[in-house]
Design a protein around this nucleic acid. Sequence first.
RNA 1: GGGCCCUUCGUCUAUCGGUUAGGACACCAGAUUUUCAUUCUGGGAAGAGCGGUUCGACUCCGCUAGGGCCUGCCA
Length: 479
Amino acid sequence: MLRRPTRPAPRSGPMTVVTRFAPSPTGSLHIGGARTALFNLLYARHAGGRFLLRIEDTDRERSTAAAVQAIFDGLNWLGVTPDAEPVFQHTRAERHREVVMQLLARGRAYRDYMTVEELEAERERARAEGRAIRSVWRDRTAEPGDNRPHVIRFKGPLQGETVVQDLVKGPVVFRNIELDDLVLLRSDGAPTYNLAVVVDDHDMGVTHVIRGDDHLNNAARQSLIYQALDWPVPAFAHIPLIHGPDGAKLSKRHGAQAVSEFADMGYLPEAMRNYLARLGWGHGDDELFTDEQAIAWFDVADVVKAPARLDWAKLNFVNQQYIRAADDDRLAGMALKVHRDRGVLITRSGEARLRAAVPIVKEGAQTILQLGDLTLFTLKERPVGVDEKTAQLLTEETRARLDRLRIRLAEAADWTPPALEAELRAFAESEGVGLGKIGPALRGCLSGGAPAPDLAGTLTALGRDESLGRLADALSPVG
RNA sequence: GGGCCCUUCGUCUAUCGGUUAGGACACCAGAUUUUCAUUCUGGGAAGAGCGGUUCGACUCCGCUAGGGCCUGCCA
């Protein structure tokens, strides 16, 4: 037995891999769904195949246009975009019905006239007896002309077993008697999910069905439908769900579950891709890697079987690494947006100062929201004022000292971090004190109490005029 | 109730019958230090339990426990 099959049952001819992400548009794009989409994308790319998107909106009642848009937006933001136009399942209802008729003609489906009450009673009996439900209509044909409402059910085999060769779980065996005859067509003529997936996956040429763990049981019944139609059964890979930090199903109380929320919290899409790829999958000791590496290394067969928990601390760490590597202009643009959303006044000069500060402060930011916090000091307009802590530090002695520093800095030849660093040290030495006597107060005067980088960095980001101006404001008797 | 899946440090993972069970995040201690942060060094931390197979099990099998999924004319 192959413990870890890396490819599906052999078929004739060369096969290009086709994967697909098939969400139902009943809400926002969930983080778990996003990862499923990512895995599908990575696997397709890895195999040189194609990645498709299908919106599973057979249930028109519960599907909304807003949810469809949320899925598009989420995938787009994450950078997980399909290789072809998305397929809307509801548009294929005719084809689905056509296949059901084929099944009927082949004797692999039957019309079931059970009323909801009868069904309910049968369900209770079946549960009590510990078996799958069975319709009396399975072996009975209605009188010709019987126009009562009815559903069409799949006629599953009563003997034997069906084995799902799952790429991540290994072979999973189901006894056919345990599998109930699922509804193919509802009484209103609408196709159901289990039928629609099979037909659409087949028609779209999907070779690898990579989806959530919760579909593992369906895989057996779907396999039966493929077989009844004489269609090749695709390879299945059921990946575990993502849980919250406490191991319970991910929910609102864990902070977020929609990818749009992660975007709003200041996570970079490339960081999310990296983190998500590492959740439930690993490649040796590699933690940080490029999309190209992920594609080169990824294989569904290596996906971990157990559910993983979302770890905010690690996500933050990964995001921080990507922020450090990110382009400064891009980061500045994002930081500016954060400030705009927070209602912070942004002047032309303030924006310039912020842009100058980004490369200096970005290493300490774990999220773009934090990058906002760290750049706030640049946007303050004079006089910026001083916080209480700084005010206490501004004794007569310190004020006088800072004023001497101000004069000295005004004449500094070189306004760059290393030069300013040296200047500050030299000044402290000439004053006969340690930098600790000057630094905190100077920082307070320059930043107005907001977080700021090291002094040389702060001075550089602010620029000479602004720095000296802020210092003068703070030292002036009225200020 | 029935069927199915899962179980290595707190978390994410490596290991594929023979390792001092490795790495990362987090945590703790120390160093550096002009706040926070960064950086550097060091540290503690794991195979759910019980049986079996084997010369040898984290790795294979079984049972138990715990967690999860499905059991819809939802997807």
